[in-house]
């Protein structure tokens, strides 16, 4: 089927695409409605209209002046950075080692990591929270350490895929040229594998930015943005919360769209499926 084939033959396709687009866009539309329509006309009225009856920035201004913004943002940002960093610190060496020990043995480790990944977050989070309290470890470090559990297997897998695609002799050549292993890593292997590493970092970052379970259990107050949002929602300050939610969602949407090409590629879904 070519791109230029007629509208008529593609009609069912377009109808399907449009219906699905509506189904998937509608919730985002609701978020935009709540954010930009004056609250009394909108979610404070019993049957809010689907077509915006008015427009205002009041909700956003109100949200930004009344709610604590900088705290959750900075905390979320730092935690996401730590999680991204941890993914690289643990993932790059692990992927390097796995690439060296042969595909069969490596696959066994990969299975192990993905199995561990199935461990319910809440089961793990509660003892961690209790132990961290005992150790007096800062909550944000605890959250980052725990969230890393979610992304480590996928990070290892993505970076491993990158290493597998590199010509083996590049590393050997560097060793022959007089570089020791750390130098070879830093000067050759990491720069050569930078796109996989970047993707692993971004995915980790994004996952942490969104993560709720570990964050709310390990650090229920003065926490990251999703926990803060949850607190606002339970206190029923919904129109400010929506303004809040929308602004925090925009960067993630951008990252997701940027990563779209990669997300659609085999290496990502391959990571989930093998």
């Amino acid at each position: 089927m070519s791109v230029n084939s007629s509208w008529k033959s593609n009609l069912p396709l377009y109808i399907g695409a449009i219906i699905l687009s509506i189904i998937f866009f509608y919730p985002l539309y609701v978020l935009i409605l709540i954010t930009f329509v004056p609250a009394p006309l909108n979610n404070l009225s019993p049957y809010p209209p689907q077509i915006p009856p008015g427009f205002t920035f009041y909700n956003i201004i109100q949200a930004y002046s009344a709610l604590d913004l900088t705290g959750p943002v900075t905390r979320s940002f730092y935690v996401a950075m730590m999680v991204g960093g941890l993914s690289l610190a643990l993932g790059i060496p692990a992927a390097y080692g796995l690439n060296k020990i042969g595909v069969r043995t490596a696959n066994k480790f990969i299975i192990f990591f993905f199995l561990i990944n199935m461990m319910p977050g809440i089961v793990v989070a509660i003892p961690i929270s209790v132990e961290f309290l005992k150790l007096g470890l800062s909550n944000m470090y605890g959250v980052a350490l725990a969230q890393e559990l979610v992304v480590l297997p996928l990070s290892i897998f993505i970076i491993l895929g990158g290493f597998r695609a590199l010509p083996r002799d590049l590393e050997n050549q560097a060793r022959v040229d007089g570089a020791n292993l750390p130098t070879t890593m830093y000067r050759i292997l990491i720069p050569m594998n930078r796109s996989a590493i970047l993707v692993a970092f971004l995915l980790s970052w994004m996952t942490s930015w969104d993560e709720f379970t570990y964050a709310v259990i390990i650090s229920p107050v003065k926490s990251t943005f999703p926990v803060q949002l949850y607190n606002y929602v339970t206190r029923a300050v919904s129109f400010e919360a929506s303004a809040f939610a929308l602004t925090f969602t925009i960067p993630v949407i951008i990252v997701a769209v940027v990563l779209q090409k990669y997300l659609k590629s085999q290496s990502f879904t391959g990571g989930l499926s093998s």
């Binding site: 050997n172 050549q173 060793r175 022959v176 570089a179």
Partner: peptide, 20 residues
């Protein structure tokens, strides 16, 4: 000895130039 301490040069079959 590890390769970087042997001081032997090698040209690989596929040249292995550093593309970066």
């Amino acid at each position: 000895l590890p390769p970087h301490k042997r001081n032997i040069a090698m040209v690989f079959q596929n040249y292995a130039l550093y593309p970066n």
